[in-house]
Design a protein around this nucleic acid. Sequence first.
DNA 1: CAGCTGACAAATATTGAAATCTGTCAGCTG
DNA 2: CAGCTGACAGATTTCAATATTTGTCAGCTG
Lengths: 195, 195
Amino acid sequence: MAPTSETLTAERILEATEEVLRRHGPAKATVVDVARALGVSHGSVYRHFRTKAALREAVTKRWLDRTSGKLARIAEASDRDPAARLRDWLTALFEAKRHKAGDDPELFATYTVLTDENGAVVGEHIAELTAQLTRIITEGAGSGTFAVPDPAVAARAVFQATGRFHDPCYAREWTRPGVGEEFTALVDLLVRGLS
Amino acid sequence: MAPTSETLTAERILEATEEVLRRHGPAKATVVDVARALGVSHGSVYRHFRTKAALREAVTKRWLDRTSGKLARIAEASDRDPAARLRDWLTALFEAKRHKAGDDPELFATYTVLTDENGAVVGEHIAELTAQLTRIITEGAGSGTFAVPDPAVAARAVFQATGRFHDPCYAREWTRPGVGEEFTALVDLLVRGLS
DNA sequence: CAGCTGACAAATATTGAAATCTGTCAGCTG
DNA sequence: CAGCTGACAGATTTCAATATTTGTCAGCTG
């Protein structure tokens, strides 16, 4: 591939790693492949990432951050009605996952492997998403839309309750007919419970 | 092992298979092992179960039926308050799973493998549990405890929402401190949503 | 001399030949 | 003769030899 003679940065290595993962899948993507894609020796890659695991972890974090970034915009729109915002946020999360899984199942499977091997990064991602939910619910509690004893606890409950519509281990259910209705029924139930 | 010279029945084969699975685990349990445990040739086992897969499926069904049997008693206690009954039922389901996973993790892992390879049987089991939930919610709707447009839809939503506390793919979370509180928070939220 | 290379040891993965297992069935046995 | 046996073919698994990959580092190069 284009051994662009720009200086070698962590950023460029991450880009190349994503490409190699896309091409070869998680099992056969080696750091030698990544080096070759960049036109450098694999020793150079180890200058920027201490281990292969650290490299894969960084790729995983990047991928997850792209999702939480999108959702943050909804969480931060403090002017809108909290109940509608909560629905939108949950819907956006579900849609994002559903598209990732449906549009390119192989790539999704690749990232599922990566998230499985990087529990810590996933934990942080979940903490970030729960914090966004907490923000929406706290504002709803302030404006009287929601009546909850502890917004953080409620946020965690909502996040866990909707697991079936965002946890990759349920990905195969997301294409079944009727999931949309199931999702709506659950969100309705949860919003009623918070109100 | 005891080659009890009683006549060979499907029942006895299932018993022996459970024992072999307990001893050797799902990967190394062969039908020759089962036959040996019974003191017969493996050909005899094939007289009662067409394939090894059918045998494992029957064992899986048996295991799942033991759980749904216990829960059915709670679902059928029509005299008690539906909200309390719903809480009890969900708690019993969680406790049953938590104990199975915690008391003998290896055996639980074995059955997790079995359920993974028998999607159809698991599907029926889930349908049965959802039917029990529907019964509780329908009675609650009749008595005015619950206000739901469609009890079956609500039941499915409740079952899916509590997945984190009964789906084996979350088993490793069940020993973390604080799960009890998370469970209670979610059930409170759901019961409020139904009321 | 900062950054890269490539030879190297140790760890991990692949391969293919040998061993085991599944499922069948002709024939034995009580 | 109903039910069981055990030899068998094909499918699957195991295991050890072989090849690849990871991670290090002394030294090259611009």
